[in-house]
Computed example of a mutant assay.
Amino acid sequence: MTQKQALTISETAAARVKDIMASRGAGYLRVGVKKGGCAGMEYVMDYITAPEPLDEIVEDKGVTIVVDATSLLFLLGSEIHWDVTPISSKFVFRNPNETDACGCGESVTLVPAQQAS
């Protein structure tokens, strides 16, 4: 039985991450969530040279993504996307565990993913 990947990354996001990592000399994209904002949680991203011992490692579209162990249940099933509009460009999480978001889009309400039966 094959285990489903914790999260995925779109082609456009993968291309952008590769460009950023090449310019910074980083080897991994680290993602997670932290408490904050009016809706309760915020997504966080960083570029790192080595994962922590309990991190989940995901390989997708040529990018190595490190998921913070404490954030894993909140990010299961998510896709990281690179969104470009006429006035901005940013990474966006398409997350099935997101139940609400604040009006300004800076924070979200997340529930842990439910274990499949």
Rank of each mutant, 00 (worst) to 15 (best):
A116E: 10
K61I: 11
Y47E: 03
Q5K: 11
T99A: 03
V108D: 02
E11H: 13
E11L: 11
A39C: 10
A116W: 05
N97L: 00
Q5Y: 08
P96Q: 06
K18Y: 04
A39G: 06
F93N: 04
R16G: 14
E42S: 05
D100K: 15
P51T: 05
K90S: 14
P96N: 03
L54S: 13
N95I: 00
S23I: 15
T99L: 03
D55Y: 12
L75N: 02
G103T: 14
V108N: 04
E98V: 07
N95Q: 03
G103M: 11
V108W: 01
E79G: 02
T64Q: 13
M1S: 08
G37H: 00
A6R: 01
A13N: 14
R30S: 11
E56M: 09
T109N: 11
V17K: 01
I57G: 02
P112G: 04
T70L: 15
I65K: 02
Y47C: 06
A6E: 07
P96C: 10
Y28E: 15
G40H: 07
R94V: 13
K18W: 02
I80G: 02
I65H: 01
V66E: 00
W82N: 14
K35E: 13
Y47P: 03
C102V: 08
K90F: 10
P53T: 07
K35F: 10
T12Q: 12
G25L: 05
V44G: 13
G37L: 00
H81L: 08
D19W: 08
T70A: 15
C104I: 10
S23Y: 12
T12F: 10
Q114M: 13
W82H: 13
L76W: 04
T8F: 05
G62Q: 05
T49W: 08
E11T: 15
G25D: 01
